[in-house]
Amino acid sequence: MARELVTGIAALALAAAYFAAADALPVSLLSDEVGADGVPKAIAVALGLCGLMQLARAALRRAPAAAGDETAAGAKPHLRALGLLGIAIAYVVVTPHVGYLVATMPASACRSRSRRCRSPARSCCGCPS
């Protein structure tokens, strides 16, 4: 239920932000009649309409009985997903400074510890060339 609403609201917000960004595009004399902002604005309007339809659908639908299925699992899966993302980001941030191999070892060790592995998962599958 909440997810349907979130989808609609997010679509509307994104459409508005995107429209504003399109409107701020500079105008070029080399441009055509449609312009650099023409198609993006059309997309933004279409997305806004879809967002409204989605909201209407979410509001009109009778509240389903099975609302508690996801909340029961709690935030733990999301936190773990965030953890994986954190490792990946740390990897990207660290690598340029310390080099590929050095960054890979703690990253894979770190990753394996978070998964409670017996030994560090080897991840040197291919060196960036």
Binding site: V92, R111, G126
Partner: peptide, 24 residues
């Protein structure tokens, strides 16, 4: 086993993407 596989895939994906243009 899954932890190995996840680490392997993540590394595979990241080095694959990186090697297109050597771009973080």
């Amino acid at each position: 086993p899954k932890p190995y596989l996840i680490a392997f895939i993540l590394a595979l994906v990241m080095s694959g993407i990186y090697s297109i243009e050597q771009s973080f």
